[in-house]
Design a protein around this nucleic acid. Sequence first.
DNA 1: CATATTTAGTCCACAACGTAGACTAATTCG
DNA 2: CGAATTAGTCTACGTTGTGGACTAAATATG
Lengths: 400, 400
Amino acid sequence: MAQAVRHDAMRARNLSLVLREVRTHGSLTRASLAEVTGLTKTTVSKLVGDLLDAGLVVETGAVRGGERGRPGVEVRVSGDRVAALGLELNVDYLAVRVVDLARRVRLRLTQTVDNRLSEPLDVIGDLRRLALSALAQAEGTGLRVVGAGLAVPGPVDVESGEIHNAPNLGWRNVPVGTALDLGVPIRVENEANLAALGELWFGVGRADFLYVSGEIGIGAGLVVNGALFRGARGFAGELGHVVVTPEGPQCRCGARGCLEQYAGQDAFFEAAGDRSPYAHGIDAIVAQLEHGDAATLAACDKAGWALGVALSSAINLVDPHTIVLGGIYAPLFPWIGGVVAETMGGRLAQLRAQAPPVEVSQLGSEAAALGAAGQVLETVVADPAALSERLTDRRDPAPR
Amino acid sequence: MAQAVRHDAMRARNLSLVLREVRTHGSLTRASLAEVTGLTKTTVSKLVGDLLDAGLVVETGAVRGGERGRPGVEVRVSGDRVAALGLELNVDYLAVRVVDLARRVRLRLTQTVDNRLSEPLDVIGDLRRLALSALAQAEGTGLRVVGAGLAVPGPVDVESGEIHNAPNLGWRNVPVGTALDLGVPIRVENEANLAALGELWFGVGRADFLYVSGEIGIGAGLVVNGALFRGARGFAGELGHVVVTPEGPQCRCGARGCLEQYAGQDAFFEAAGDRSPYAHGIDAIVAQLEHGDAATLAACDKAGWALGVALSSAINLVDPHTIVLGGIYAPLFPWIGGVVAETMGGRLAQLRAQAPPVEVSQLGSEAAALGAAGQVLETVVADPAALSERLTDRRDPAPR
DNA sequence: CATATTTAGTCCACAACGTAGACTAATTCG
DNA sequence: CGAATTAGTCTACGTTGTGGACTAAATATG
């Protein structure tokens, strides 16, 4: 597990440290970098030089003025050289995003289709076409796409890139990772996990929170200290099958009274009296709520209560700092947020000083694709030296 | 968070790596250390030399023979120089253990008292006396006690060493860490967390498991990849307040239907028809079970079922590899293990290939104290250089 | 407006540490 | 007993960070 540290590893780490500090501060001079990292000015200068050569940071013309003394030249993360592809394959849409190292979204391609009606390989083909088009466009503007992340609705074997079992798509053991074959490395991951990371890097998430993804299934992504918690086998976060009532309604997972049976999309739509939810969608539900429809309001109460109960268990077990509600719970937030918080408060307030605050995701359905791209960019920041080598090998033999 | 790496940090890490490999392999020659770490023979020789000087490893007279060529001299972790103190302050006993770096228990002191009857400071005084006596004995045999760990029943602020709220003791905001004042650094931590670590290092635990501590309260310690999972605020693992039935019996935490109301020691003893549980204790219950007492058997079924329900939620959320039952569940295992596993299997088998196996703790009430000592020893292995400095400063000015 | 002061960034000699390969030591095999 | 083999040490060297001197470019001061 632990690896021997040699000079190159030392260098790689310090390079990463500098790049990370530049990113968190927006832009920094070499002098202030020396201060925040604890490295000497000399070392920082050398490291920044390498990052400039690799195109990962750029000097802003701007200069820190105001005080006296020679003004420093600030550097910031460059968004013009390196980018990543974020993909999402979900039940009713495909999404592709190109995000640069500065975390700006450079390209958005979305396609609405009911993927349950097609064969897995056809769906993957559609996504591949979309992704390749995005790749070509990105590389046309001079961006080097260093990798792709793919979000899928269900547990995944991250090593092999295989979908184990995506009940909402009806897929089993589909090797999406290898089938996509984009010419860049692909990392496949659960949608809820990537949405959580999306929220961390592009949304309201802070370093510690539990993201709740309300789709047909209910998933959760736990972010602890800025990193995803995946559990021993990578199946952590199955909030949808946390017990609400042990002898409650039968769930398709084989158990009874799982959260999904109270607050899942299907159960919720049915409780709201909508018999053709996929025709009307969540917007119709919101419209009903805005008109004060009693059945729909009652459905919100029920779902919110169940969510509050399941989240209470989750909070007792994993102690997140904040809860972030995404998926269908985001548009429903005005009608369920209160019940969720109240239920949680009633169950938790005495043991803890207070229950964690409940917030809404702002990213909509984009969260997972952004998280997928962000995850790839994270690997670049974690080891800029690896990329720099790759860049020099593939492009100019001697960049300096 | 991330720190700059300098030459000394590189060295510290490699020193730690070598020591860790020696420990996991029991004993190793320099040559095989070079192989497993990837460092060169030269470097390993130097590092091993330093560890020998610091007294953290010793050369076994024994030599790896059999093959041809010059036989290598094996080194193993030395238990004769460095040790740690493991303390537990619980409701009905105080425990002190001295454990050496080779993880051998050198001294056991246990005192049975009902600590709810005394003032916190008096209890701390008792523990202090016990600990100082153990310290003196240990140092008398030439061991250097580098620190102490203290397990307490309830959530703790690890930074300040303060007990927030230990409902079973009736303590609130007691600064145990500073009050103990042993002359060595003290780390205070939740009993369930330390028992989990005890199980990891001294018992049946492997790298990923959820330890369940059945005491008056029910706690859990989650070990992921060999490290404790503490959550954002350090309050993770409150398994006792996971929901079993949302509208069930009132719990002292303010909620209803928490696991503790079904499987906690008080609820269980009451269901077993024992009106004076503290007089008879768990042994009396086991005797009743061995005689086939119907009420007690029924109490086991109920507690086991509730435990299975709560663990199902926990497994869905954090995906541990294994469940380890400790506390009162260890002696009760023959009568509840089956129900727990069945309940979990019924709820989990379909979504996962199979529910995690359920095992029994073998350490009894010693787990937390051993984990507490082990945690201190871990800091030594993680940074032997820090200790080596301390040793040279305090003992011989120039040990070599 | 010239000079002192201050801060940024670079340069150079040096120290710490790991590497590579030669070398010595201690065994077994034939 | 010598060749082969493996363990461990020694020495020259390469990489990387350090520390302080030095240069650069701004503001403050008289």
